[in-house]
Computed example of a mutant assay.
Amino acid sequence: MSNDNAKKRGAPPHHFIDDDWLALRDEPVLEPERPIVDPHHHLWDRPHHRYLLPELLADLDTGHHVRGTVFVECSSMYRADGDARFACVGEVEFVNGIAAMSASGVYGPVRACAGIVGKVDLTLGGFAEEVLQACAARAPDRFRGIRQMAAWDTSPEVSTLLRPPPKDLLQDAKFREGYAVLGRMGLSFDAWVYHPQLPQLIELVDAVPATPVVLNHLGGRAGLGPYAGRHDDVFREWKASIQALAERPNVSVKLGGIGMRLGGFDFHERPLPPTSEELAEAWSPYVQTCIEAFGPSRAMFESNFPVDKSCCTYRVLWNAFKRLAEGFSEDEKTDLFAGSAVRAYRLPQALTKAAP
């Protein structure tokens, strides 16, 4: 197996998928009848990687009973013409078309992109409401909120976004003005930050408590750069922030996104992809901390595909999640795998049930 490929797996810009390496690992599907709503994936067509409906369906059709999904923004298919402030509406239009294709039933019972999380620049302040209204008008049955990534760190090893946000975005006065619009419109905010920024997120939630918040990727615990070799200190700081954030009843958490290199695990470098047992063992302290803090009713497993596909296949990933949920009751598992996502994104309740 090429060492060059090992270096590219999961490295910025997070588009390289080593299919030959992933094919070296397979395992039977655990609990194949359990309904799943995947609340976090992307779609894009980029120079070095394509992940559109066929690629998504190929992953969803690997044995797990995925009933529906939620698309989360990734600056895909923005409008090339017109007022630049409304360019992001193009992404919502694009994904709503994909969702309509899936809703036709031509591609099976799964309802891909049943919820859409777009992006609107909240630093537009009050004007953000006009852009949000335009997004909602393009997908009135599916547009549920926005994500404006705030993940920023002084270390280039940690801060790897193609278009990094400004430092302290969550504290910007114009951003907060736009953020307040979300709650008034009944929309949610997906928060992507690194763990040192969690106190800023807590401040934001307290300042504008009417906006529902979905914390992405276990709160962005970093294990690279200045955080490498400081596991105990980082874990303690991260856990304290997670517990504090969970005290805010309008916040829920996504359990995933830990297949990225950000977490500091070495799975990408190994000659064989990890098993679901290996992933569950490595991820357990973080996942269990979040579930203990938020409870199953405000926690939801997520794929973060295709980004986390650099680490493992869709089949192995959800097997790992099912192993992590082994100690929970059936009702709690229903929440973790579908119910919490349905409530957070106001999706049809039928998605929590097995397909007829």
Rank of each mutant, 00 (worst) to 15 (best):
W318N: 07
A191Y: 02
L245W: 02
P212L: 02
H217Y: 03
V72G: 03
G223H: 09
S104D: 13
R138Q: 14
G125Y: 03
T275C: 00
P212I: 08
M101C: 10
M260D: 10
L255Y: 06
S284R: 13
A80S: 13
A150G: 08
H231D: 14
Q349Y: 00
G259D: 04
G295A: 09
V342Y: 00
A128C: 07
D308N: 01
F189K: 02
R323W: 00
H42D: 10
V66K: 04
P54I: 13
D233E: 15
A87D: 11
L132R: 08
E247S: 12
D20R: 04
W238G: 14
A293W: 09
E129T: 13
P28H: 07
H49D: 08
D172L: 06
R138D: 01
Y194C: 11
G10D: 12
R138L: 03
R343D: 11
S102V: 13
R343G: 06
D153F: 08
P47Y: 06
F294V: 10
F86Y: 15
P164M: 12
V205Y: 05
C74E: 06
P165R: 03
W44E: 10
K167T: 10
F294R: 09
V70R: 06
P271R: 03
E73L: 02
P226C: 06
L52V: 14
T62M: 09
P296N: 11
R343E: 05
G229P: 09
L30F: 00
L132W: 03
N5H: 14
V37G: 09
G339V: 08
A228W: 01
D18Y: 01
A23W: 04
R50A: 11
V214D: 03
G263A: 13
G223N: 08
R343S: 05
V307A: 11
T352M: 14
D59F: 03
G105A: 13
Q171E: 15
D81R: 14
F265W: 13
F175G: 06
I202W: 01
P348Q: 08
S276P: 05
L43Q: 12
V205M: 10
G223F: 10
E73Y: 00
E281S: 08
A180R: 12
D18F: 03
S188Y: 01
V205G: 07
G263Y: 02
Q200P: 05
D331T: 14
S252K: 09
A137M: 02
L52E: 15
